[in-house]
Design a protein around this nucleic acid. Sequence first.
DNA 1: ACTTGTCATTTGCAAATGCAATTATTGTTC
DNA 2: GAACAATAATTGCATTTGCAAATGACAAGT
Lengths: 180, 180
Amino acid sequence: MIGARLLEGCKSCTKAGRKTLYRLTNSLPYMLNRVGVRMGDLFSRRIAGYGVTLPMYRVMAALWEKGDQRLGDLADMTTIEISTLSRLVGEMKRRGLVTRTRLKDNARTVAINLTPKGRTLVEELIPIAIHFEEVAVRNFPSKNVSDLKTVLAEIYESLNSIEPEIEEVNKARKAAKARV
Amino acid sequence: MIGARLLEGCKSCTKAGRKTLYRLTNSLPYMLNRVGVRMGDLFSRRIAGYGVTLPMYRVMAALWEKGDQRLGDLADMTTIEISTLSRLVGEMKRRGLVTRTRLKDNARTVAINLTPKGRTLVEELIPIAIHFEEVAVRNFPSKNVSDLKTVLAEIYESLNSIEPEIEEVNKARKAAKARV
DNA sequence: ACTTGTCATTTGCAAATGCAATTATTGTTC
DNA sequence: GAACAATAATTGCATTTGCAAATGACAAGT
């Protein structure tokens, strides 16, 4: 296993023998998750007064950017799991923010759209989102921010490519476990 | 409102009049969240075969890095909300991964520790985490990765500093809403 | 000792999430 | 055209999450 040499029990943390030591708090998944969650939390509280949750905002902003989407496409765009999204859209429909209509030529699929109420609301929220981001990164050169976004997008793509690899390892592990 | 000029209805998206246009999918909160969630999902599935969830792994890795922590400190370190963590630790105790003992000199606080079983498990998982990260970023120069980590840490700090500012706006909004 | 206040954790509740079925519709093949 | 597979969305179930309120334990002042 690559990296096994880096593993060192925490009792040894005080010893100076090893150059590199694993730290959860310095791992990329942890750091990404932490910042992402934190930013989401803050923005979520920022918009809570408008009576919408963060996932609802994301659905509305996605629909504002590109309307008349099918549920599955909206799930891809928002990266909200489709079963979650299905229920979320149901709730948003009850609140009069979106419409959900089954297509006539293919009754399997539904088309989601913003209502005028939903549109008004999201157009009130988007400037807040823009301002929020400006404040969040106001201490950083804009070059750094755009570089960051580039890297984030690249890593996201990279993750898609390693997914099959991971699934394979998982299968092997699962098979090994089934024997236990 | 700063940024209001950037707001443009989606019908106008086809027009070429505006230089900048808001896109949810290009906003920093969205991109961070997307990558963080995706990476978490993949790693979560990677370790699912070992019978632990991702939050459980994070708790164990945090305890491995620094043992004998109080619940609140562990919440800070893992950035898991304390009420969530309380329940999570309860479940982990039932599974024999950690111990939770109330201090004798201050019965308000509890000390959380890894059990030998928990320690064995996390020491099996950490090399997997290291390898996972290596694979996830293997296409990127290590300089880029370390720069990324630096920026992520800085943004996280920056968020802490803007929190009071946001809370203040929220309060104002809340007060305005109470009048409705 | 008795109220008051603060601190650390836990619980109640409502939402969001992921996975695994299930339903409903459309396509394909014999 | 009847059986079967494929597609799109929904539902059931268990877990995770966050906020707010409640509990339980200590601290201070009177």
